[in-house]
Write a protein that binds this DNA or RNA. Structure first.
Lengths: 143, 143
DNA sequence: CTCGGTGCAAAATGTTTGCAAGTAC
DNA sequence: GTACTTGCAAACATTTTGCACCGAG
């Protein structure tokens, strides 16, 4: 593992500790498989990727790991129009375009969104944890 | 039905015709049940509501009706973090706050969003049909 | 050693499909 | 009369749960 990878792993170990999660090979593999992944994979897709590292890992473990990572903030769940839950390592603010036909999600940047302020009516009643512009439509390959 | 309701029904009939959908009592009931509904209901919830008007309607009919309404633009599907598809009569631009615990969706307005321009990189490759700010967090009753 | 995590299997939940009978046009 | 819709049931896909064994701390 390179220096950057080592650093990332340290951060991960740190986060597990502070969330009270034990450090298991399965969790590390799920984490490594997702960090840097921009494809917003489903649990199934993560499972297939992780199985290359740990061939006898079960789907349930992957799925439970993903859900617990979401609960403690290591990953983010992605808004979706389909039937499958999808995940995002979610570093930094970015926005999504999602194809209504194939479900593909494309990230984009929109620096001007920095000036967005959560309306008083929302802020007064709710704890806001995520913010994002979501576009929908039809992607090039589905047209 | 009052005058406004009559007008809404006319629009609905119009839309069905131009989409090649036949006008059935079931479809009209689904449409009426959703128009003006701000709760972003799931198919199951729409089913329960429609069944009060047509007691022997089946869940499948409601679900298929919702899906075909989405295809022809009479309704919109709502982005979601849960496992259930949800629907929105979707008149006019508005934005969503969704509770990550209970899934409740609250609409809000943000007039400044009118100045949002879809980035060139997206516009060049994709057909954009919907645009919205999506906030996530924890609602007052889940805290 | 202890408690949380894993893997397997079963159950639950939600969505989609096939088809005969019914109905809008 | 024809083609689209409906209702029922079965098939599918995906997520969640229960539990005995295992392994990190």
């Amino acid at each position: 593992m390179d220096k950057q990878g080592k650093e990332a792993e340290d951060i991960f170990v740190q986060r597990c500790r502070s969330s009270g999660l034990r450090l298991t090979p399965q969790r590390l593999a799920v984490y490594e498989s997702l960090s840097g992944d921009k494809s917003h994979p489903s649990a199934e897709k993560v499972f297939r990727k992780v199985r290359k590292m740990i061939p006898n890992i079960s789907f349930d473990t992957v799925n439970r790991t993903l859900l617990s990572f979401v609960s403690c903030g290591i990953l983010k769940a992605v808004e979706s129009y389909g039937r499958v839950k999808r995940f995002d390592p979610g570093l930094g603010e970015h926005h999504h375009f999602q194809c209504l036909k194939c479900g593909k999600i494309i990230d984009f940047e929109y620096p001007d969104f920095a000036s967005f302020r959560v309306p008083e009516t929302i802020r007064r009643k709710f704890v806001v944890m995520g913010r994002r512009i979501v576009l929908t439509g039809i992607c090039d390959s589905c047209r």
